[in-house]
């Protein structure tokens, strides 16, 4: 293998091919992290709503989850990018088409975030439901309101229990960020393909991309394992989902 091509001036943009790789890594991380923030916040809200006793809150959350997880990510990506600007009111559509900064990137972030939110919601719901009903009763019996019971009793335990599946979901959004290349975001996989087309050093550049993905996955996995250890409740041997 010869990695010398990395330091040659790239076909365009003024830098080297190494600069293209680095830029690809950056976009992959931006997509994953920003998408995750949406997924985590929205998914947590939806997951909680799916467990509350009020049908008027539970049903919309359930519909959201079913819609977003039963349509392929690629289709959702195209809908955000090609369809939404056409079916929203004209002024908003014009803004989306002509004035929104970095439309490909932000569309991809919202798409990844809202798609992953449906999966996060399922994990949060499963975490809450794995906690024995007696805990809700105990929270209410000492005079907490239902929201207080969620805040102080159910959620602190649920989030601890679901750290491993949430880690998996983060790694999933990280890998899924490559789907953004279909609407033109030059993240890592797109850069790898582009560099292979310009340099014909396909094996080398794919190897680099693979190693970068694997290293980031490893880093995240070990960090989360460490956090899980730190967050462990002394003496607690509990339900860990599956």
């Amino acid at each position: 293998m010869d990695f010398g091509f990395l330091f040659e001036p790239a076909f365009s943009g003024g830098g080297t091919y190494l600069d293209w790789v680095i830029s690809g890594i950056q976009w992959t991380l931006y997509l994953s992290v920003l998408g995750w923030i949406i997924a985590f916040v929205l998914g947590s809200i939806l997951g909680v709503l799916r467990t509350v006793p009020l049908a008027i809150l539970r049903v919309p959350a359930t519909i959201y989850v079913e819609v977003f997880r039963n349509i392929p990510l690629l289709v959702q990506m195209f809908i955000w990018y090609f369809v939404v600007p056409e079916i929203v009111p004209k002024a908003a559509g014009d803004w989306l088409k002509t004035q929104m900064p970095m439309p490909e990137f932000w569309n991809a972030v919202f798409c990844l975030g809202t798609y992953t939110a449906s999966r996060v919601a399922e994990q949060v719901r499963a975490g809450i439901q794995s906690i024995p009903r007696g805990q809700v009763h105990a929270g209410l019996a000492i005079g907490l309101t239902l929201p207080q019971t969620y805040r102080h009793v159910l959620l602190p335990m649920s989030y601890r229990i679901i750290i491993p599946p949430l880690t998996t979901e983060f790694l999933t959004i990280f890998k899924n960020s490559s789907v953004a290349l279909t609407i033109g975001v030059l993240e890592l996989t797109a850069q790898a393909r582009q560099i292979s087309e310009y340099t014909f050093q396909t094996f080398e550049i794919f190897t680099i991309a693979t190693v970068v993905y694997a290293l980031i996955t490893l880093t995240v996995t070990f960090t989360m394992r460490w956090i899980e250890g730190r967050a462990r409740v002394p003496g607690y041997i509990g339900t860990t989902g599956k």
């Binding site: 890998k175 960020s177 693979t210």
Partner: peptide, 18 residues
């Protein structure tokens, strides 16, 4: 298994097409 599970499907498709 660990390697394949840590990279995106699109990259895997590119790999095999190559």
């Amino acid at each position: 298994v660990n390697l394949v599970r840590s990279i995106p499907l699109i990259l895997v498709i590119f790999w095999f097409y190559f």
